[in-house]
Write a protein that binds this DNA or RNA. Structure first.
Lengths: 125, 125
DNA sequence: CGGTATCCGAACCGATACTG
DNA sequence: CAGTATCGGTTCGGATACCG
């Protein structure tokens, strides 16, 4: 074995990222964690997301057990979304990520600038 | 204001995910954190990634300042990759994510099963 | 209001072939 | 060995139109 062995954590982290790691899922979870409960169009306006993507994202999050969907049979209909306990438990790892981002994104931006400048020089632009 | 206000953390987390949140970036970082230094084809074999994607992923990670690229001008060429200090600092938030995954993926799987079963019943399959 | 259905361009990603 | 170039299939994601 050695390098060719699959690292066990890799698959797990990949799994979690493929489920809740996309742009809209994360933003929905953060929004719900901040406001507690939001209606469909409140989320839509808040995130600037298209109806189609919000619908898809919410259904996946509900399917994964991270989001509650409560529908009131009124006219016009009213649907509220909130985090499940599982959804809430995801907030902490997400917060860690956010803290790292706040702290290190400037460094990334600087690294990018330096890298791009290097390559422009190399290619004689 | 209120709900229509953009949550400041949202954009930051979105930014970090759009940079290092994709499948292969994360797996490369984990691999390098485990083995310290790896050559191109070692990473390729280890991750089961295509040459094209590994090349692109490594270039982005190098550009973002998370990965060091060291090239030896030999024949055949030898290129080694390792984490920068910035790359190492990303390991901890990643580990949090991994721990959450290990702990909660079974719950997600169960939630999915339940959800799918519900819908099959509803649609009379 | 809270969706679904359809269309369409853009991006992703693997497979393959080629290069220094 | 370490890439780049090209191609084709899949997914992403917004715009629009329509429905209960």
């Amino acid at each position: 074995m050695g390098i060719t062995a699959q690292c066990t954590d890799c698959k797990r982290i990949h799994d979690v990222l493929s489920r809740v790691g996309d742009k809209w899922s994360v933003l929905v979870i953060i929004s719900l964690s901040q406001y507690g409960t939001l209606r469909f169009n409140e989320l839509k306006r808040h995130l600037g997301i298209s109806q189609r993507m919000l619908s898809r994202t919410l259904r996946e999050l509900e399917r994964d057990g991270l989001v509650n969907r409560t529908q009131y049979p009124t006219i016009p209909p009213k649907v509220e979304y909130s985090l499940t306990p599982l959804g809430h438990s995801f907030k902490e790892p997400l917060r860690e990520l956010g803290l790292w981002a706040v702290e290190n994104l400037p460094k990334i931006d600087k690294a990018r600038e330096a890298f791009d400048e290097m390559n422009e020089v190399k290619e004689g632009v």
